[in-house]
Design a binder for these strands. Structure first.
Length: 548
RNA sequence: GAGCUCGUAGCUCAGUAGGUAGAGCAACGCCCUUUUAAGGCGUGGGUCCUGGGUUCGAGCCCCAGCGAGCUCACCA
């Protein structure tokens, strides 16, 4: 528990202070305090009141809070109480609280919880303050608080000791309050539209509904291996088969993958399904939903993220093919353009990629020279930023080409090319639709175009926010898709989908035409709070254990 | 998994050139009855992330490890 001798001796010192407090007739750990108002309530009610009005009406309040600042001045003193993320000053003077009360005041430390009863007034500097008439001790901080001006700044400590972060960094607290607002707004959005909130298994025997590696666990009594779910999708569609036409679930998914600013192994996913809707309907709902949530929690659709101003009320829709053509780097104009090839023929894609990769490398070298010759920091930054983008793109393209030569399905290559060329540039809200069938084992094919499915993903801030499609409801086709995924699994893709025969059986009972969608809630919260890292919107992100 | 950066008092951070560790806050004692990053005087507090190495001498240089951040890889 103790990090140092300093902490141990402080703890001992505080214990003896607690004993002193008990000698004053106060309980060391009392079990309640009858507050008349919360701190935010006092501020809301009297925050604007004039000094004379307070004096005339003599408003008496009793509030509780944690001491975040304390300034003693001989026979009087101040303290700042914090509760529910807001602060209120108290003024304690010997002649108002008496010998015992003032003795208690002198035994208080930063971080202690106290109750203060008295009347409101304004100090000389105009600050709303409680003139305390009775102090009640509530609980002691036995450890030292972080530095009061900077708060807890160490990122690692903020994640590991979130309990300290939350009361010392109020901005951090605001993020999580807003996160709760996002969840509330999402529920309201779907509740108002007649969706039923459901809960489906977190522990599954066949982890399906996504392409990801699962966590494994074990049930002792049944001696059965289980996997933490990577998605609720297949269960939710079973419910639609069962006649729950509109369902949604907000819960955790678990994916056994690396961590990054956009990935935490457990993350919160919203999925919803609507019978008789297709992916065009879902596009409409998506735009309405994001706009609704933004307005509910921020009062506006405009948000600021990573240096960009993003308007979550203004959407662009592009097919994947259109997007690749639109975002194809102009630096490659002379070596070939994607609008001249069919996206369904492996050879044509390879012929486009080969010279493009070479050219990109040349361009990067040329940009390197320009960086050396550049005058001015701005120019250097601009050129090197572009160079970073292109060099990353070139590496990803090379991987796509290599995979394609190794017999990767064409649709998979197109999808990976999309991720290389387009995804990082989707800062403003964008819907990308019409995905290759090979990367969409659960989506319904486009009528008359068996290579593509009725699926879209939506992006903002440069990352994927969610994924939606017209659900494949033909059990024969679904079984075939699963078999294709098994082939990919054999080819070495351990994230390819597994066979789920019970799901196929469910489809055989008849799934109505249905649209379904998943939304990364953490990422939406990131956008709405301007948080660059997913860890800043997850209360307790996964961390390696500290060594002893 | 790779690269870069970081790790010094409870917290926020300095630390010159390799010469044996500092400030502010917090703590402790004293003074102060409208302060607010209160103030004044004084005191205590360190496994410089860990383990090796180089050196007469290492917080600083080298190697390995641990943890973190960022970037990349991985990641419907």
């Amino acid at each position: 528990m103790f990090d140092s001798e300093f902490e141990r001796s402080l703890f001992d010192l505080r214990k003896s202070k607690l004993e002193e407090i008990e000698k004053l007739g106060q309980a060391a750990y009392p079990n309640q305090f009858p507050a008349s108002h919360s701190v935010p309530a006092v501020r809301a009610r009297w925050g604007q009141s004039q000094a004379e009005d307070l004096e005339a009406s003599r408003v008496t309040v009793a509030v509780a809070g944690r001491i975040m600042a304390i300034r003693a001045q001989g026979k009087a003193g101040f303290a700042t109480l914090q509760q529910n993320g807001e602060r209120l000053q108290i003024y304690v003077r010997l002649d108002a609280v008496g010998e015992q009360g003032f003795a208690l005041y002198k035994l208080l430390d930063l971080g202690d919880h106290i109750g203060a009863s008295g009347y409101l007034f304004r100090t000389r500097t105009g600050e709303l303050t409680i003139h305390v008439e009775r102090l009640t001790f509530l609980s002691k901080a036995m450890l030292a608080l972080p530095e009061k001006f900077h708060g807890l700044a160490d990122v690692e400590l903020r994640y590991r000791q979130r309990y300290v972060d939350l009361f010392t960094n109020l901005d951090s607290r605001k993020v999580f309050v807003k996160r709760a607002g996002v969840l509330k707004a999402l529920r309201r959005f779907f509740d108002e539209r007649g969706y039923l909130e459901v809960e489906t298994p977190m522990m599954q025997q066949i982890p399906g509904g996504a392409a990801a590696r699962p966590f494994k666990t074990h049930h002792n009594a049944l001696d059965m291996d289980l996997f933490l779910r990577i998605a609720p999708e297949l269960y939710l569609k079973r419910l639609v088969v069962g006649g729950l036409d509109r369902v949604y679930e907000i819960n955790r998914n678990f994916r056994n993958e690396g961590v990054s600013t956009q990935h935490n192994p457990e993350f919160t996913m919203l999925e919803f399904y609507q019978a008789y809707a297709n992916y065009y309907d879902l596009m409409q709902i998506t735009e309405e939903m994001i706009e609704f949530v933004a307005r509910q929690v921020n009062g506006t659709t405009v948000t600021h993220f990573n240096g960009h101003e993003i308007d979550l009320g203004k959407w662009t829709r592009l097919t994947m093919r259109e997007a690749i053509i639109k975002y194809w780097p102009p630096e490659l104009a002379s070596t070939g353009k994607p609008n001249s090839i069919r996206f369904t023929v492996r050879g044509e894609l390879q012929e486009l990629l080969e010279p493009s990769i070479v050219t990109l490398k040349d361009v990067c070298d040329e940009l390197n020279n320009q960086i050396l010759a550049a005058c001015g920091e701005d120019e250097t930054l601009r050129i090197s930023a572009r160079q970073d983008q292109l060099s990353k793109m070139s590496n990803m393209m090379a991987a796509v080409l290599e995979d394609s030569i190794a017999a990767a399905p064409i649709g998979k290559s197109v999808y990976n090319l999309f991720e290389a060329v387009v995804e990082p540039f989707l800062i403003q809200p964008t819907i990308i639709y019409d995905y290759p069938v090979e990367v969409s084992p659960l989506s319904k094919a486009k009528p008359g175009d068996p290579a593509h499915v009725e699926r879209f993903e939506f992006f903002a801030g440069g990352f994927e926010l969610g994924n939606a499609f017209s659900e494949l409801n033909d059990p024969v086709e679904q079984e075939k898709r699963f078999r294709q995924q098994l082939a990919e699994r054999d080819r070495g893709d351990d994230e390819a989908h597994q066979m789920d025969e019970d799901y196929v059986r469910a489809l055989a009972y008849g799934l109505p035409p249905t649209g379904g969608e998943g939304l990364g809630v953490d990422r939406l919260v990131m956008l709405l709070t301007g948080s660059k890292s997913i860890r800043d919107v997850i209360l307790f992100p996964l961390m390696r254990p500290e060594k002893q």
